[in-house]
């Protein structure tokens, strides 16, 4: 589903990703762990198509297509979803209006017909209930005045409404208490199925107790420096990143 080969990415003059290679198959959940500044968020933004990240060499292929040639909205319509670390507050646009506009934009781009207001409302309400997203949050301006936990739950609500094929979770666990973490993880796990893939980016092992990955990659200084099964997370938790990172030239 996703093939990243020898990816080099620079922001301005500074090279952040220095030859990253990764392969993700349908049905799989991979985790990317790494210390601060290792390039985790850069990877997530590059996958979503944010401006300001220059791909200097390497390739990203999504379902056989060059992902980097697509605009962010085209990627979304083709099933790529990034749950952001810092969801943006947009005063003046209600959460419900935003969800309806986004969902129908994706549907239209795929040649599907618009869902009417009532159809969207029903869909969103049903999903919102399982994620403890209140009716009030849906009526309020997007992310404005939401707590850290509410913002993250809203990201997962979007994920469950859009039903993406490839989800990237960027530090979705940060700022969540244990109850919120459980709710978020359940929302994610519901979407796990043989047709979808997920990339879980996290600093801590904690989230991976709830979203159990098939494979873990350790990112340091812009490169994958170690790989392993879910037990690698426990090792990192016990020993820290340093013993792995210091071995990297």
């Amino acid at each position: 589903m996703l093939e990243i080969k020898n990816l080099h990415v620079a922001v301005g003059d500074k090279e952040i990703l220095k030859g990253l290679t990764l392969s993700l198959k349908p049905g799989q959940v991979h985790a990317i762990m790494g210390p601060n500044g290792s390039g985790k968020s850069t990877l997530s933004y590059v996958l979503a198509g944010r401006a300001g990240y220059d791909i200097t060499s390497g390739s990203i292929t999504y379902n056989g297509e060059d992902l980097t040639a697509l605009a962010p909205e085209e990627r979304a319509a083709k099933g790529v979803f990034l749950a952001m670390q810092y969801p943006v507050e947009i005063p003046g646009v209600t959460t419900m209006t935003f969800l309806k506009t986004a969902l129908n934009s994706q549907r239209r781009a795929r040649g599907e017909s618009d869902l009417d207001a009532i159809g969207v409302l029903k869909l969103v309400r049903a999903k919102a209930k399982t994620l403890n997203v209140s009716e009030d949050m849906l009526k309020r301006a997007l992310n404005v005045g939401f707590s850290g936990g509410e913002k993250k739950r809203l990201e997962i609500l979007q994920m469950s409404v859009f039903e993406p094929k490839l989800t990237i979770l960027d530090e979705t666990d940060s700022g969540l208490d244990i109850d919120a973490l459980r709710v978020v993880a359940e929302g994610v796990n519901i979407l796990r199925d043989p047709s979808r893939a997920m990339l879980v980016i996290t600093h801590y092992q904690r989230l991976l107790d709830y979203i159990v990955p098939d494979r873990i990659h350790v990112l340091a200084k812009g490169r994958i420096v170690a790989e392993g099964g879910k037990e690698l997370a426990l090792e990192l938790e016990a020993k820290g990143y340093e013993h792995i990172v210091k071995d990297v030239a």
Partner: peptide, 12 residues
């Protein structure tokens, strides 16, 4: 904000 909306499928 513009990127956030586009990343959710809304055209520029």
């Amino acid at each position: 904000s513009l990127f956030y909306l586009r990343a959710r499928g809304i055209s520029e």
